[in-house]
Design a protein around this nucleic acid. Structure first.
Lengths: 211, 211, 211, 211
DNA sequence: GATGAATGAGGGTTCATTCAT
DNA sequence: GATGAATGAACCCTCATTCAT
């Protein structure tokens, strides 16, 4: 076996161990929160010894940062997927939401753990905001401005509009995390509910002239 | 001084001390989270000795529960104020949001402290959901159904509609808490932005017949 | 009222308060032991405020010493009473034991508390030994020597003999304190059991010649 | 090295550590009592760090229970040894007492620590009574009844007789623990003093007929 | 004298981190 | 690299004692 191959296997092994540890951490952080989870518990859940964790992560906080990176990655892919979907504006939103919500669903425990820590650990919150939320805004801002210019959207404040949509998604997630089971059960209906709501609003449809 | 007066002063003193402690706790919990805040720090911030905290609260957890009660109270008052406002539907929403957002603004540190802990400590989250969120839903459900029946609102799923509005508000709060300074600066504009958005949606206004 | 009278009343009041406190302490120490009883509990049981205890006793340890003094007093009276009884040797022992055991019975909770502390707090144990036990030995030593000289008692080591009797009494007390309910129930039978045992031993009576 | 050997060494090491800790605890508990001894002190006396204690014992109370178990074990062995001795009745008692007292001598610090705590902590006392004292009674009861039936012992209440002997032993121990140095010095003489006392009593020997 | 709120030292316990094997 | 025993700092909480009222 060449050195290169050995190095590669080595890297693979390290990546595997890290994943193994992060998965254990994810589950436990989601169950009991960061502070209430001990390194020993993580080690046991990962089938490793306590000291071994420290071969792959500098300290307990590093686990949190690694999970945030992992979330970063997963969000970035979600955005890519979303952009793949095209079509009418409302349809696009529907498929975007469907993607988004499905995705969040999977990452729910991780999100719960991280959101909690983000609110508590300001550094982490800032990092999330700057690395994930702000870029998403930036992505959306131009399209919105264009749509408004083309008269395909009401002349709303773009900076706020671009925030309203993630806010709605994040808010629904929060309600679910806080224990709203109805939302959990009706998850599949959400995209078809939110997209029209966003585009048409609550007001009744104006009567068509000759129909 | 009569006994009654003495008792009253006594009660006042106790209330003052509790407030003093809870304010210190709120700030610190918001800054560093519940678990990372020590009783000693709270005592110092409140200008008291460590042991004194335990004269007013059974243990550290009791501080958290007291903060939740405080939030309960503050939300209840917010709802009352909101209900006072009447007028057109959109106007009502505008004033409701104005109230709500102003209120949240004041309670920001408290909310940050509690929301973080609620995500981490499921029991607390459940309690918040059951004591505050669910009752709000119940309050809104009937009016919405009536509005739909009277044709004043599009025929949307009431259970989801009633969730969409707090979700939007909560989501905006979360974005702020995670570090969105733009939202913080534009807080005053939010009601005038959200209310029309909710009622008219993003779609451009249909052209008026004779204009 | 003269100063003398006032002083007297004063003293009476102080004595009453001290008794009040010591009674509360006795009960609680017997229930939960010295270390596990708090000054607050003693104060409450005595119907006083915490601080008041410190007007009558220098500190918590002083309560223990005062209880030991009280025991001293009560033991001394027991001995006096015992000496009052006279008659045959075995009869004397019987009545002595009856007195002793009755007495202990009354002071049981106090004794339990104090014996426990005495074993733990060597200073206290020494004090008890020197003030109560050693003097009792001294009291018994001479009479025993005389009895032996007069042939009314077997020629046993007086120093050990004088210890054997209190040892038996103390041992029976300990067994009771450790939870021997049989001894508790048969307390009344003890003097009539122990006295003959001590004098005649376990061996069967030698057969009488012509009887 | 085989796994078996490794396991064995591991077990040995654990046993050693436990012993090391229990010995330190015994000494300190005997000196200062359970409540007044800190884990830190025990750790220091055992040459370990504070936290290490908790690797071998769940909590401070567990130390106490372990000491009680140790006493259990040691008493059980004492009983076995005692039963080994046979011969005349009085001789048997003499050798039983010799065993018993020698044994107690060795376990003195342990006994002092535990007896004090047993008086204070009723649960512990009960446990000692039920696990050690009551079984000893049971062991002795039948032999005594038989001896009485065979006329080899005076017709005394067996339940009390069986209690009198341990009471005497326990009482002598207590006197020693409370500071009676004479008993400590004359320990070797005790069996030869107590056994005849128990069997023949204090009364002088009746004059032999033809001597 | 009496009170009881306030104090803060000190204890048991947990757990992130280290390091000899 | 992997282990997990050992460490000890730091936390929550209790409670004897003080002192202003």
């Amino acid at each position: 076996m060449t050195d290169k191959q050995a190095d590669y296997l080595q890297e693979q092994l390290i990546a595997t161990r890290r994943t193994q540890i992060l998965e254990a951490a994810t589950t436990l952080f989601a169950e009991k929160g960061f502070a209430r989870t001990t390194i020993k518990e993580i080690a046991q859940a990962a089938g490793l010894a306590e000291g071994t964790i420290y071969l792959y992560f500098k300290n307990k906080d590093a686990l949190l940062l690694a999970l945030l990176d992992q979330l970063n990655e997963s969000e970035r892919r979600a955005v890519d997927l979303a952009q793949a979907g095209t079509g009418g504006l409302e349809d696009f939103m529907r498929s975007y939401l469907a993607h988004r919500l499905t995705h969040m669903q999977q990452d729910m425990p991780l999100l719960q753990a991280l959101l909690g820590e983000m609110l508590i650990n300001n550094k982490l919150g800032q990092q999330y905001y700057e690395q994930i939320i702000a870029p998403t805004y930036a992505l959306g801002l131009e399209p919105f401005k264009e749509l408004i210019a083309r008269g395909q959207m009401r002349d709303l404040d773009p900076a706020l509009t671009v925030r309203a949509i993630p806010a709605l998604v994040l808010g629904l997630l929060m309600l679910q995390l806080l224990g709203d089971t109805e939302l959990e059960n009706r998850r599949a209906d959400l995209p078809d509910f939110i997209a029209p709501l966003l585009f048409k609003g609550l007001n009744p449809e104006p009567p068509h002239d000759h129909d």
